[in-house]
């Protein structure tokens, strides 16, 4: 599980990679909490490198979304691999998250 961060103007793009599971979710939450704590208000999570996500990973993303909203920010997701997207559709999380096919459109739609 890895998080690579880049800042494009006032947007923070975090590229996630590897497995988001019961053992790696706490690390992801800490990383993203740190980024939100730095007053980032527009955040994109690029999930292209995610090879696996379980229910604790989905719960972590919901927790991150809740925290960003509480802080007055906005979260966009982009580039969900097919397997990950199918889990979002299965669990109806597509209704909670704003999801884009490309990073450019995720950034352009704040």
């Amino acid at each position: 599980m890895g998080v690579d961060k880049k800042v494009v103007g006032d947007i923070t793009v975090c590229s996630l990679g590897g497995e988001i599971n019961i053992n790696t979710s706490p690390e992801l939450r800490r990383s993203l909490d740190g980024i939100i704590g730095q007053s980032a208000k527009k955040i994109v999570l690029d999930l292209d490198g995610v090879t696996y996500i379980d229910s604790s990973g989905l719960a972590t993303l919901i927790e991150v979304l809740r925290r960003i909203k509480r802080e007055g920010g906005t979260l966009h997701l982009c580039r969900l691999p097919d397997k990950v997207r199918s889990l979002f559709e299965m669990t109806k999380l597509t209704k909670l998250f704003q999801i884009y096919d490309a990073e450019e459109t995720a950034c352009a739609n704040f």
Binding site: D54, S55, E63, T91, K92, L96
Partner: peptide, 21 residues
């Protein structure tokens, strides 16, 4: 049921649902 609107923002409750699906 985790896909009901009132449960969507809850952290847990998706494990068994995913298994069944």
């Amino acid at each position: 049921n985790p896909i009901l609107d009132e449960n969507m923002m809850k952290m847990g409750g998706r494990g068994v649902f995913l298994i069944k699906r």
